[in-house]
């Protein structure tokens, strides 16, 4: 593990008007780890991911990437190319599935889009048959897989996933988890995975964190988080007793 963490957040707060969406005192994410962010709807998981992806600026505080502080969209381009965020609601462009998956690749190179890479990732996610389909004809789950393919084809060093399996059936959830495990085994990648699914967090997370009302309650290794949570609120959440 490197001395410098992949991400380090210090006294980070994000407000929209008077509403505090995220208020994190300290969070350290190591390179190559898989961190699952658990929390109910509206806990601030998506906002935290957007701050990590540098598509939004914190109201106050520092978000450090490999030791360097950056300000929202002022992230250097070469660093930005190493981080990709997959949104909870797939944001696809008009046109075909192939065009969408190739979009990020085309931004990075003036050369013609490497079709083989696009075809390979579509094949890997089991959606090769959708390559020429117009995205407006896709189901929610298919759109989510396309958004994931568009991120994975870029081979980022950091992949931020916001409920990437929310619209998928159990078979496809298993497929996505398997693909991401294979990607992580093949290529060192830092995964930050927001979910409200306890079982999924237990399956995929090396470390798990709980967010409640924008505050990070606890972060611990997955087995400790689920077996011996330090905070009573984590225990209540894990045992399904939390009413919010």
């Amino acid at each position: 593990m490197n001395e410098l963490p992949q991400f380090e957040l210090r006294q980070v707060r994000k407000q929209y008007g008077r509403t505090v969406a995220v208020d994190v005192e300290h969070l350290r994410i190591e390179a190559g780890e898989t961190l699952c962010l658990l929390g109910p709807t509206g806990a601030g998981k998506s906002v935290l991911l957007r701050l990590l992806a540098a598509v939004e600026r914190p109201t106050v505080g520092e978000v450090r990437f490999e030791g360097r502080d950056y300000l929202g969209d002022r992230l250097p381009r070469e660093t930005r190319h190493r981080i990709t965020l997959v949104f909870q609601r797939p944001v696809l462009l008009s046109g075909s599935v192939s065009r969408n998956v190739a979009y990020g690749l085309r931004l990075r190179t003036c050369l013609a889009c490497p079709k083989t890479e696009v075809a390979r990732i579509l094949e890997h996610l089991g959606i090769a048959h959708l390559a020429d389909r117009a995205v407006r004809t896709l189901s929610g789950g298919q759109a989510q897989l396309v958004a994931l393919a568009r991120a994975l084809v870029l081979k980022p060093d950091v992949l931020l996933l916001d409920e990437p399996t929310a619209h998928l059936d159990p078979a496809h959830v298993a497929l996505v988890e398997r693909v991401l495990r294979e990607v992580a085994a093949f290529h060192p990648i830092t995964l930050v995975w927001a979910t409200h699914n306890l079982f999924q967090a237990r399956r995929v997370g090396q470390r798990v964190g709980l967010l409640l009302n924008g505050r990070l309650i606890e972060v611990a290794a997955a087995d400790v988080f689920f077996r011996e949570p330090a905070d009573p609120r984590t225990r209540d959440f894990v045992e399904g007793r939390m009413i919010y």
Binding site: R50, A53, A54, V55, E56, D73, R77, R80, H81, I83, T84, L85, F87, R89, V91, L93, S94, Y103, G104, L107, R108, R150, A151, L154, L160
Partner: peptide
Amino acid sequence: ELRMQLLSLGATQWQIRQTVLWE
């Protein structure tokens, strides 16, 4: 979220404007 998604895919402000205009 379209703008943020394009930014996170590595688009420059100019490329974001072009893509949003096309959409």
